[in-house]
Design a binder for these strands. Structure first.
Lengths: 195, 195
DNA sequence: TCGTTTATGTCAGCCATGTTGACTTATCTT
DNA sequence: AAGATAAGTCAACATGGCTGACATAAACGA
């Protein structure tokens, strides 16, 4: 399987947008591979440091990065369902279960059965959960604000467009709808509750 | 410790640039917290998908993301030392050891004693290692090229400045020197080899 | 009403990859 | 010769992914 002994002549299928992978200066090609590699490395370093501050705080609470992710999305999009969270995090139910249970047991998140569909367990942060979420977010938001400021006036739009385009094309609508729905309940599919 | 029962009045220490954390409309403050949160989420989603393609390929080789990181930096900065790698990845020697040994045993990386300092084990990719590294990088580079293109003409500079500023200030010189030194040996401290 | 699907939860075990701590060997430096 | 440095190793442990198998409750469709 995937023998790797041919010298990479054919372009390995890209994400989904399938353009050329550089190597033959075709089209308007502005960025040489070497430049692109630098962006890849910068993204690695940026993300590495983006997670540092909250990771340190989490340790004081006996939590890990997985807890942060769950608490963040429950806090920013309270009322979401377990299945929404699974979809956002792209992990298995069992993996989520472990950290979610700990957050519930320790009083950072509460569940509430859905009113339209009582099978659903809508997730909400407690006051304690909200406070921890904000505390974890604070250094990240400062870092982002500083970085956007450092990148100049045009950066807000450019960085946003860039990050959005980095997401798998088929997931972009989902990501947009997640971000559009702030605090309140997440985009319910379509039952009888308003819409 | 870190009791969390006070309502977050004091600004939790930022990364290192220490500005205000929003909340009191001071200074030129352009970005409200809600906007910043969206950048945090977008960065999460972008990185999530950025690692997807190579992760899938790695599985075919019995490797994980940790192997990818090691192979990448050895390939792009061949001749680096183990300590350089530790510094880049910010993991322990023991964690690195495990994946590095596997990459060496399977013939993707070779070691060579340093000529100036024979204690050092300089790391180089084999042809096989180079091919795998390129194969793993390919979909990521396509994704980056597409995203930069989608973000418009000014995005290259803005995104680069943004990502650089996201890195811890004290690590920025190091990151720059890593990226400046492409293929050839990494910045040796200062022995008798030129400089 | 009954059967199926859906949303959630759970048990059990495995794997990848991070951690700490202790210690060895080879080599360079002073 | 002594001490510092680069690298490697052993052992134990924690986190957070994974698969597979199942259980329960509620909704839905025929």
């Amino acid at each position: 399987m995937t023998d790797l002994n041919e010298p990479m002549t054919q372009v390995p299928k890209p994400a989904e947008t399938a353009r050329r992978s550089d190597g033959g200066s075709r089209e308007k090609e502005a960025l040489p591979e070497a430049k692109l590699v630098e962006y890849a490395e910068l993204l690695f370093f940026a993300y590495r440091d983006f997670t540092r501050d909250p990771d340190a705080i989490l340790k004081d609470f006996g939590f890990g990065r997985a807890h942060h992710r769950v608490l963040h999305f429950v806090n920013r999009h309270s009322g979401l369902r377990v299945v929404d969270l699974l979809d956002i995090l792209t992990i298995t139910k069992q993996s989520l279960s472990r950290v979610l249970k700990q957050l519930i047991d320790k009083g950072y998140i509460v569940q509430q059965a859905g009113s339209a569909d009582r099978r659903e367990r809508l997730l909400y942060p407690t006051d304690k959960g909200r406070m921890l979420a904000e505390r974890l977010a604070a250094p990240q938001l400062v870092r982002l604000a500083d970085a956007l400021h450092a990148a100049g006036p045009g950066a807000e739009v450019a960085v946003r467009d860039f990050l959005e385009a980095m997401v798998n094309a088929e997931d972009r609508p989902k990501v947009s709808s997640i971000m559009a729905a702030s605090p309140r309940p997440l985009k319910r599919r379509d039952k009888e509750e308003g819409a």
